[in-house]
Design a protein around this nucleic acid. Structure first.
Lengths: 207, 207
DNA sequence: ACCTGAACACCGTTCAAGT
DNA sequence: ACCTGAACACCGTTCAAGT
């Protein structure tokens, strides 16, 4: 779809609004989001966005959905990296999660704040896809015997909660940046150790 | 300080506004907070709150501070309950944290969203007091030899992150209520097990 | 199908003025 | 010291009308 002569007034207003909204959130926070100013910055009338986003909440929902999609992609890339052990992959994935939080703190807050307002199925799917990355790693770890057997969702939720908690604490300003990576390392180490010890068999062959 | 004849126009406007704000947050969410409507509900002019809260952020900060104070009190009560073992106390405290999240989800979100906007020292102190409850329990567990030695803040942050992560996931609607308590139990069990195994000595005397 | 412009009811914030 | 009322510049949302 070429847009050489600027078809009508903006070509693809929806994605232009989303891109600008993402910029505003990153630079000024989610509270600063204003439909009218967004329209102004993009060069359309204040009522033009209405065709693409029913209301303010719909825009935030779309923003959250895009955020979860990007988060999922980044987690997937980290999980499928060059590391050999599942433990190393888990650490890389956890670090990718926290990296997202440091780079897009306000967006992460928005992603987990939009709640079930709109009950958007697309948002739920995008969020679950991000969670699946961790789930798959755990299943692989269990299959290789490196992690104790157990319901993957239950133990996956445990790790996810911890990593998300670290990220949430950081975006709230309650965690000094110097302690951030150390905490992530501790959390993954602690997780792997705990999941090993959960097994009925002795933790080491020579015990 | 008797207020039999209604001193001037409202007696104690500040606490009346805070109480009403807490109610609005609980019933309609933090986004619904409006200084003008608060003033209306309390029966003063829309500019009266200005004397007590410099702006909208100041009100939110005061709300967050009160929230952290209440959270600290509830955690302290749970930590000092009838349980005998430190592990049982840790579980009771974690449950109290999650109970706070289920009863005041929007307030908890606001508490961790106010960020360092105002740099309020009182808010920081109230937040740290809540964290200290967990810290003290861990120190006690380490002293009794039930938990491995280590920097209490570092390992305390680990547990705090996990419990807060569970609460945050719940308030975001990403955790079905039926799984909530099970996850808390898993988390505390996993934590205690991991902290035991971290010790260089064998996990059980008869190993 | 997509966008505009006027209109409405609401905000937060400020400031002179009242008691 | 504490509160009021008018004023200002902003919102989100709606709706008839334009292209």
């Amino acid at each position: 779809v070429a847009q050489a002569s600027r078809p009508y007034h903006h070509g693809n207003l929806r994605s232009a609004l989303l891109a600008q909204a993402e910029r505003v959130v990153r630079e000024h926070g989610a509270d600063e989001l204003s439909l009218r100013e967004l329209a102004r910055q993009v060069g359309v009338s204040h009522s033009a966005p209405r065709r693409h986003f029913a209301d303010r909440q719909a825009l935030r929902g779309a923003l959250a959905e895009a955020g979860f999609e990007r988060l999922g992609t980044e987690l997937q890339a980290a999980a499928g990296g060059a590391e050999d052990s599942v433990a190393a992959r888990l650490l890389a994935t956890a670090r990718a999660y926290v990296r997202f939080a440091t780079r897009d703190a306000a967006l992460l807050e928005l992603m987990f704040a939009s709640k079930h307002e709109t009950e958007s199925a697309a948002l739920d799917a995008a969020a679950e896809r991000a969670f699946w990355v961790i789930l798959e790693l755990i299943q692989r770890g269990q299959a290789s015997g490196m992690l104790a057997a157990g319901e993957p969702e239950r133990v996956g939720l445990l790790l996810f909660s911890t990593v998300h908690g670290i990220a949430a604490l950081y975006t709230s300003g309650m965690l000094p940046p110097e302690q951030l990576d150390q905490l992530v390392v501790d959390a993954v180490e602690h997780f792997v150790r705990g999941q090993r010890a959960a097994d009925g068999r002795p933790p080491a062959p020579g015990c």
